[in-house]
């Protein structure tokens, strides 16, 4: 892939220039590190990965699928602001690739697609694992960005990853210089981020050690809310109080960690026990998705472990299984 060079101080000039044509979204350090719309490029914070994943910008927490008045349906025009996202880590880029598989390849979800198609993904390589919970190195992550920035001290190497990236680098060519440098596969490996030992858990389903992750689970579902890949949702109708015929059908995130996830009419719950729900989450991430799509859903960002109020570390649980 073609590589360009950029002086460190030119990076922020480049981002400032981008901001004039696009909505720029990058990590900032506030109460926690989070992706936000940038007004001042000096606010961009690249020391740690964001606490919240990017998914809400594409697969939104709530989405109006359509409005209705009786049986008459009004579909909202797709909203598609032109956005540049900067500072996305490799794990999160891969999470976007997995959600693309679901919402753009498996089905054509017009709400997700319109947000994605008008976005540029500018990645930022982790020279070292930004959190002790990271384990992206144990998973088979791929290159998935429009432009990927590799920090080399006083300069950056910028790998062009797509046609969109090529377009952006061309449009703003004054901020880049040509170089013969290449980024090797070895240089793309993030050190000390390979703590998940087992690649295949399909034979461990009945292992008694899963219980270790269950006794202290509060079913709070912070793990699924903060997961950059979790894409489960539910659909409900909301009606107005003035005219009960008028309302909207809404999609919203849902969590497999709560009983309601499998509750059918007549009150029967299929995954009633916490162990079944915990295993379902881990197996969807590390087994079921792979059976269908050839790649693990989990990207090893470690957010579900960091966010867990009782610090259930499923990586450790799996590693200790004999």
């Amino acid at each position: 892939m073609r590589v360009l060079k950029q002086k460190k101080k030119r990076l922020f000039e480049f981002l400032g220039k981008l901001k004039q044509s696009y909505e720029l979204i990058a990590p900032v350090s506030k109460d926690v590190v989070r992706f936000e719309k940038i007004d001042d490029t000096g606010d961009i914070y690249l020391e740690k990965n964001s606490y919240f994943p990017l998914k809400e910008y594409f697969f939104r927490k709530e989405e109006v699928l359509f409005k209705f008045n009786g049986n008459k349906i009004i579909v909202p025009a797709p909203e598609a602001p032109a956005r540049v996202f900067f500072g996305i880590r490799k794990c999160d880029l891969n999470a976007i690739s997995h959600q693309d598989m679901v919402f753009m390849n498996q089905v054509n979800d017009p709400y997700y697609s319109s947000m994605r198609k008008n976005s540029f993904l500018l990645g930022y390589h982790c020279n070292t694992a930004p959190s002790p919970f990271c384990f992206c190195g144990s998973l088979e992550l791929v290159d998935y960005s429009d432009l990927m920035f590799y920090d080399r001290g006083d300069y950056l190497l910028v790998e062009i990853g797509s046609e969109k990236g090529k377009f952006l680098a061309g449009k703003f060519r004054e901020f880049f210089v040509e170089t013969n440098a290449a980024i090797t596969q070895k240089e793309k490996i993030i050190p000390r981020a390979d703590r998940l030992d087992k690649k295949d858990i399909s034979h461990l389903y009945d292992h008694p050690d899963w219980k270790k992750g269950v006794d202290i689970c509060l079913s709070c579902s912070a793990c699924t809310a903060l997961c950059p890949t979790c894409y489960c949702f539910e659909i409900h109708d909301n009606v107005g109080t003035k005219n009960p015929k008028e309302g909207e059908r809404k999609r919203s995130w849902s969590s497999c960690q709560v009983q309601e996830f499998t509750k059918v009419a007549g009150e029967h719950v299929f995954r009633k026990e916490r162990e079944e729900r915990f295993k379902h989450r881990i197996y969807h991430q590390l087994d079921y998705f792979k059976q269908k799509n050839g790649i693990n859903l989990c990207v090893g960002c470690g957010r579900c472990i960091e966010a867990c109020p009782t610090r259930i570390d499923f990586v450790e649980i799996i590693n200790e299984m004999k």
């Binding site: 894409y231 949702f233 059918v264």
Partner: peptide, 19 residues
């Protein structure tokens, strides 16, 4: 099989039984 279902498109995941 009977399960809770929302999308019927294989993406909302509520009706998933194992994989």
């Amino acid at each position: 099989a009977e399960r809770l279902m929302y999308c019927a498109l294989g993406i909302c995941c509520h009706c998933m039984i194992r994989g």
